[in-house]
């Protein structure tokens, strides 16, 4: 693998007094797809938020592209080229699809029309609905808006929190293939997924979290083949 893009090193922290993450370690290399799986409440979303400066981090460091970003603010992190699609409420519901995409490019000062065209090419259903408020779209399409919004900055690393949660199987497959396509553009991806089978099938590497701690770490294929992991998280 090539250069390390993101390193989470011995991170301990939480939202308030109590720690949620304990000595967490993760890495994402340039252009890699890394998947985090684990039971509900394991701290998967929290791990993502730790990267984005939304946590009180009491120990450890987070580095991106050689810079320590442990205590950076969210907008500084966005400017560095990391985009984050949260698990829920990830679009602006009263803004139109088009405006959502524009907001994704808020930190850019240059002309964004090329990027907009590219996103519409990438997500054809959005082009039709560009003038509708994002809140009126179906779950799958909203997820596309959220991802499209994140791609407006041409990030080098994309954090996706359960992009297929609550979607019908048809949309699920679509989202997974989009993730693959995004990755083929050379964008590194760190993704939390409940559909562990499909996600690990796509992943270069995967992490299994439980109770805020690392449990397993291996290539996607090996994790899929691991019997313990399979029993714990893949429904036997």
């Amino acid at each position: 693998m090539s250069d390390v893009l993101l390193t989470i090193e011995n991170v301990t922290g939480g939202y308030g007094e109590a720690d949620i993450l304990f000595d967490l370690n993760m890495k994402v290399h340039d252009g890699e797809v890394v998947v985090i799986v684990g039971p509900n409440g394991a701290g998967k979303s929290t791990a993502m938020k730790s990267v984005f400066g939304l946590l009180k981090i009491r120990g450890g460091t987070i580095t991106y592209d050689g810079h320590d970003i442990t205590h950076d603010t969210s907008d500084a992190i966005v400017r560095r080229g990391i985009c984050y699609v949260p698990q829920t409420n990830n679009v602006f519901p009263t803004l139109t699809v088009h405006e959502n995409l524009e907001m994704g490019a808020f930190v850019r000062k240059d002309d964004i029309s090329d990027s907009l065209d590219r996103i519409y090419e990438f997500f054809p259903p959005l082009k039709e609905k560009r003038k509708l408020p994002a809140g009126t779209l179906s779950g799958g399409q909203r997820q596309m808006v959220a991802m499209g919004k994140a791609l407006m900055l041409d990030p080098k690393l994309l954090l996706l929190d359960e992009p297929t949660a609550g979607l019908s199987p048809k949309y699920m497959d679509q989202i997974f293939s989009i993730v693959k396509q995004i990755n083929e553009l050379g964008i590194g991806i760190l993704m939390v997924e409940q559909n562990a089978k499909q996600a690990l099938g796509l992943a270069d590497r995967g992490y299994v979290l439980a109770s805020g701690k690392n449990r397993y770490e291996d290539t996607g294929a090996n994790l899929l083949a691991n019997r313990e992991v399979a029993e714990m998280f893949l429904g036997g």
Binding site: F52, S74, V78, F92, T94, L153
Partner: peptide, 23 residues
């Protein structure tokens, strides 16, 4: 305007606005 849309975005969801890089 960009600022007007950003205002609506913050009104919609201030945390998401911050995560999106809106000042």
């Amino acid at each position: 305007t960009k600022m007007g849309k950003a205002m609506r975005a913050v009104a919609d969801n201030a945390e998401l606005a911050r995560l999106t890089g809106i000042n």
